[in-house]
């Protein structure tokens, strides 16, 4: 601070002190306007907050609803039902073609030989000659 600043400080201090003591105060109308703005803005993001709190600590029904919608709702349930019915039907009455594959799946097949090198199928006739 300059010398001038040092000399001025005490004199200006009285003015600054008076200004601090007589700070203009908002009236009730201004407080009301500011609060009205706060309410309006808060209303804009209140639904998101409410949904979040319901999901976090809401009722059992709310949580089940959340799971239901996460799974896709009724459309996905229709597909799931059709797949279930088809699976049960295959279990009860398997098609005849399934009989050749079934032993592989169940492990009841006697002997299964799988040629890992299909090219031998072409060599065998030549060897036989």
């Amino acid at each position: 601070m300059t010398d001038a600043g040092k000399n001025d400080a005490p004199a200006l201090g009285a003015f600054f002190a008076a200004a601090k003591a007589r700070a203009p105060q908002p009236d009730t109308a201004l407080f009301a306007r500011v609060m009205a703005d706060a309410d309006a803005v808060q209303a804009g993001f209140a639904p998101a907050s409410a949904a979040t709190s319901e999901a976090r600590g809401g009722t059992l029904r709310a949580r089940l609803d959340l799971i239901w919608h996460a799974l896709g709702g009724w459309p996905s349930m229709a597909g799931l039902s059709a797949a279930t019915v088809a699976g049960i039907w295959l279990g009860v009455s398997p098609p005849t073609a399934l009989g050749t594959v079934a032993p592989l799946l169940t492990g009841r097949a006697e002997t299964v030989v799988i040629d890992a090198e299909p090219v031998t199928a072409y060599l065998l006739p030549e060897e036989a000659m």
Partner: peptide
């Protein structure tokens, strides 16, 4: 808290900050 929907926080901030803001703007 205001952002989480707490209206009491809005009122506390209004009462606390409006005088400062208005005083500064006035000066």
């Amino acid at each position: 808290r205001f952002a989480q929907g707490d209206r009491a926080a809005a009122r506390a901030l209004t009462l606390r900050l409006t005088p400062k803001v208005m005083g500064h703007a006035y000066r």
